[in-house]
């Protein structure tokens, strides 16, 4: 049975946002716009009413440390003012490991306490993790914790991680190979245009899809529309 969002089973979208110093400027601006657009798209989905959110949002900004945004802690999207969300690029280094660790602790509890016992668990959408970064991880090895997130599942259906590596010139490349390994299969997008980062966040985050194959298809469509080669 297909997993779809409804009022009774909203999808949890978990955004891990690179807030390191190198993101400052157009990349941070594009990330802000993308997260805001994603929130607005998610708010626009489903019947009207503040208590009818079809999505919940977790926002974790990471620089040298990972910080959970208090107003976006599994919060129904219609309770979040999109205009209040910003990425500034003022967080120092790039600690992907800690960001994934913070996410894992929340997701493990969410899967155990919300999705698994849910009366509509076969149709309940699984959390979608979106991670974007323009740098090289400088703190430990994030792959084991990413693997643990991807192993979280309900009835064999796993959580999907989609990653975007962001660069604006060739001298400033992200660690694409690491991000590809963190991502679920075919769920990596190489971004060299800040506007594509906005599209990645907005379109993938509001797509309502759960499985790696479905998320990969959304990313494929973004690439197609933007003329990005695989």
């Amino acid at each position: 049975m297909k997993r779809t969002t409804r009022r009774s089973r909203p999808q949890l979208v978990c955004v891990l946002a690179d807030n390191s110093g190198s993101m400052a400027g157009p990349k941070a601006q594009a990330a802000t716009e993308g997260i805001q657009e994603m929130l607005l798209e998610c708010q626009a989905t489903g019947p009207r009413g503040a208590d009818r959110s079809y999505f919940r949002l977790v926002l974790i900004r990471f620089g040298s440390k990972a910080e959970l945004e208090p107003q976006c802690n599994m919060t129904p999207v219609r309770q979040i003012d999109a205009a209040s969300i910003t990425i500034r690029g003022d967080g120092g280094g790039t600690n992907i490991t800690e960001a994934l660790d913070v996410a894992y602790r929340g997701l493990e509890q969410y899967m155990r306490e919300v999705v698994e016992p849910h009366p509509e668990r076969t149709e309940h959408p699984l959390p979608l993790v979106l991670l974007f970064s323009d740098g090289h991880n400088g703190f430990g090895n994030p792959e084991p914790i990413a693997t643990r997130i991807k192993r979280l599942n309900v009835d064999g259906d796993p959580i999907t991680i989609a990653c975007a590596g962001v660069s604006t010139d060739d001298s400033d490349r992200p660690d694409e190979e690491l991000l590809k390994r963190i991502a679920s299969a075919e769920c990596y997008l190489d971004i060299d245009d800040a506007q594509v980062l906005s599209a990645f966040l907005a379109e993938a985050g509001s797509s309502g899809v759960s499985s790696p194959a479905e998320v990969a298809e959304v990313i494929h469509q973004i690439k197609d529309r933007r003329g990005i080669e695989d």
């Binding site: 607005l40 626009a44 009413g49 503040a50 003012d81 999109a82 205009a83």
Partner: peptide, 10 residues
């Protein structure tokens, strides 16, 4: 029950 940001988007 709609934020200004959402209403502008609508």
């Amino acid at each position: 029950d709609v934020f200004d940001s959402m209403w502008s988007y609508v």
